[in-house]
């Protein structure tokens, strides 16, 4: 399965991926609407900044799936393709998955009292995930490995 990978050599910590991600998942048709309509869209990707090395982190869609096992509401599941997805109607925002994720990839969406996580833009785009499209330096790639 194609996944999102980061190449820390080229990450500039510009944080554009966060904004493209948040806008893509906000339901708004463009970025200005997403951020200017009074809501606070949550990015599902976050840039970790260091003094020399930066990289973006979002759900690895990993083999461990600690989040899925730990989910008390049965909201998290794995699609046949291997994408870890969250059913927002079931999620109760308990945060168990956030605590159990070894990568720190899941964030809480305070406004909606549930979690926000990367679903590889399967609901938003038909091509590449928004973070990959928005990265100015090919530091985030969507590929088979």
């Amino acid at each position: 399965m194609k996944k999102v990978y980061v190449n820390e050599d080229w990450c500039l910590a510009c944080h554009l991926c966060e904004y493209y991600c948040a806008a893509a998942n906000s339901g708004a048709t463009d970025m200005i609407k997403a951020f200017k309509s009074g809501k606070n869209p949550i990015p599902r990707i976050q840039v970790e900044e260091g003094s020399e090395v930066n990289f973006a982190v979002q759900c690895r869609h990993c083999d461990g799936k600690a989040c899925v096992k730990g989910c008390i509401a049965g909201a998290l599941s794995i699609t046949p393709e291997g994408v870890v997805v969250c059913d927002e109607n079931k999620c109760v925002g308990c945060g168990t998955c956030i605590l159990s994720c070894p990568f720190g990839c899941i964030v809480i969406d305070e406004d909606n009292h549930r979690i926000a996580k990367c679903d590889l833009c399967t609901k938003n785009h038909d091509g590449e995930p928004a973070c990959v499209q928005g990265c100015p330096n090919n530091a985030i790639v969507f590929e088979e490995r």
Binding site: L12, A13, C14, H15, L16, Y19, M31, I32, A34, F35, K36
Partner: peptide, 9 residues
């Protein structure tokens, strides 16, 4: 939208 990319870059 105040994303601050201009500032960072």
């Amino acid at each position: 939208i105040g994303c601050r990319v201009c500032e960072r870059q």
